[in-house]
Computed example of a mutant assay.
Amino acid sequence: MAEIEGIYTIWLRENKKFLRYRSRILTSVVTPLLWLLIFGTGLGSAIRFGNMSGGYQAFIFPGIIAQTILFTSVFSGLSVIQDRQFGFLKEILVAPISRPSIVLGKAIGISTTALIQGVILLLLSFVVSVPMDIYTLLLSTGVIILISMGLSGMGLLIASFTDSMEGFNLIMSFIVMPIFLLSGALFPITGLPSWLQAAVYINPLTYGVDALRNIILHQSVLPLYVDVIVVTIFAVLMILISALIFSKKEQSLM
């Protein structure tokens, strides 16, 4: 019971931090829309997707949702560094709750904030002429939860090895953009050179984007069940590994 209450408390704190800054919510919605409207329109004028309603903007719509989840989930790992610097993390560590539960509570909290942003974008699908029904919304929400759990676990894992915000941002700049660019969010992943295709299929976000594109646009490279299995395995591994590393790292600091 204490573990569940602890997880809930950490989850609640993460969400209160997110909802307290309304500018953050606004930015998290406006930035993806700018990508869709400006980048999608500009590049879409040169790339024709004649077999898809909405053209290139519709094609990148699932990818932009995945991008939002990626940036929100991974960069929220900064909260661990902030808590460590301000001494709040020590207070959590002495509480009657296990360290894996701390990681799980933070991961669920971060995933919830990413889910909120993802659902808002799904509800704005009409902007790019993509139809949205309750079935599509629910399936997409399930995939978003899986993606965000895996990516938040990755962010927490990296934060466990990093002592400063500058170091975290430096590491992220070498990880986040390659993950996004190699996910197929902005271009089809079929017909690529073999070396680039290998990098694309190693990337776990590729399967998240493909799953969302399957559900929203009914177009994908892989079967939906394959995408879901890969994303689920990634999420479970990231949570388990980040919990293990976090426990060892913070134990050494106590």
Rank of each mutant, 00 (worst) to 15 (best):
Q57D: 02
I120K: 11
L36Q: 01
N15D: 00
S183R: 08
A46I: 11
S173D: 13
K16H: 07
G208R: 12
Y225M: 03
S148T: 14
S73G: 06
Q85D: 12
F168L: 00
I64G: 04
K106A: 02
I189H: 08
G142S: 04
V103H: 05
S129R: 14
L157Q: 09
S173F: 13
S98F: 07
A199N: 10
D163S: 09
G109C: 11
L240C: 10
S76I: 13
L224V: 08
T190Y: 15
G40F: 02
V119L: 05
F174Y: 11
I69G: 05
V119G: 05
G142T: 07
S73H: 05
T190W: 12
S79E: 00
I69A: 07
V94F: 08
V74A: 05
Y21N: 10
V29K: 08
A114C: 05
L137R: 08
R99W: 13
T162G: 10
M172R: 11
D83M: 10
G87C: 02
M238Q: 08
T112G: 06
G184N: 01
L121S: 03
Q197I: 05
G6M: 04
M1E: 13
L217E: 00
Y225F: 10
W11P: 03
L36W: 01
I233V: 12
Q197G: 08
V130E: 01
L182W: 07
Q67C: 09
F75H: 08
F88A: 10
L138N: 10
S28H: 12
F234P: 03
I69Y: 09
F168C: 02
M154P: 01
I110M: 12
I245V: 11
T232Y: 05
I202G: 10
G191I: 04
D133R: 14
P96C: 06
L122V: 08
N169I: 06
G184E: 00
I69C: 04
M52C: 03
T72R: 11
T9C: 09
Q67S: 15
A198R: 14
M149L: 14
L217G: 04
F75A: 05
T190N: 15
F187M: 09
L253D: 07
D133F: 09
A198C: 07
F161D: 09
F71Q: 10
G208L: 04
R20E: 00
S252Q: 15
E91S: 14
V226A: 12
Y135H: 12
S101Y: 05
A185Q: 04
S28A: 12
F61T: 02
I81W: 01
I158Y: 11
F18H: 07
V128Y: 03
I25N: 02
I97D: 02
V228I: 13
G118A: 09
S76F: 14
V29N: 06
S183P: 03
S220A: 11
M238S: 10
G6L: 00
R20L: 00
G109N: 09
V228T: 14
F86K: 13
G150W: 04
N169W: 09
G50Y: 02
S23A: 10
D227S: 15
E91R: 14
L70N: 01
L151T: 07
F174S: 06
